[in-house]
Amino acid sequence: MRRAFAEALTEAAERDPRVIFLTGDLGYGVFDDFIARFGPRYINVGVAEAQLVNAAAGLAREGFRPVIYSIASFMTGRPFEQIRFSVGYGRLPVVIVGAGGGLCYSECGVSHHALDDYALMRLVPGMTVVAPGDPGEVRALLGQMLQLPGPSYIRIGKYGEPTYEAEAPVVLGRARMLKDGDRLAVLTTGETAPLALDALSELAGENICPILCQFHTLAPLDTQALETLHTRADTWIVVEEAYRHGALFSGVQDWLYAAGIRKRLLRLGPNEDFVLGNPRREDLRRSAGFDAPAIAKTCRAEWSAGKEPS
């Protein structure tokens, strides 16, 4: 994802002279090509996230399209005030990039875990919140974010994530159908999409065919897609690598409540706690019950439950 991001950024900067990149002293070697091509349009502000955001706000006021970059935990919670006040209140078109989001840096400890980034960014009025699931979505969404009139946030991962194909194009603000099916819907966001795809290929041999819908945009939430899913599936399983408050599950829950719809809604994801012990990400996903086997197991149980005569 990081490679895809750096390449998409360079392409965007090539097309649009207003694009300018600021980092909080991260991304060693990742942006060498960008630096070589665009010189002063690359700024390393140092380990100073408040200034990272405020400098971007100033640049946006002068008509530039700043893209700011740090590790997701340091990019969101730490300068939240600058994001809220200088960028959000000003309704400025700053693209905020949280690298290594979720539990990407699980082995680095709580300081580097970012399970609250989506929630924090969704709290800022007017903020578009983007959660791509593979390098292809990163590539497609960054260019669209740079066209927005206001602020946006994107969580990206590290290197070497699996890519996937789907007929549905990647359109900012629109959920993306990755697999069609029926009765049961799996709703993913960010890097839980490839986990669900693995689970679904395991289930295909058992003739269990849930719908898989990837919400790569968390805000604004694609309520039209939710309406469609409502007519097609009675049970929804939300899978998210984020705390349960403020990400996809709570967004879906809010929508269901407001629409007066009663539906069986399950959530797979980490608990609301600090993750101690620096475990590996795969182990964490397993123990918290949202890895591919856990998704498959839940789908299997719901599929057969749905078959029973009512």
């Binding site: 955001v53 405020n54 400098a55 706000a57 100033g58 640049l59 946006a60 006021r61 002068e62 200088s86």
Partner: peptide, 8 residues
């Protein structure tokens, strides 16, 4: 900080 961004 914003002024410094503006000046840049």
């Amino acid at each position: 900080g914003v002024a410094a961004g503006i000046l840049y």
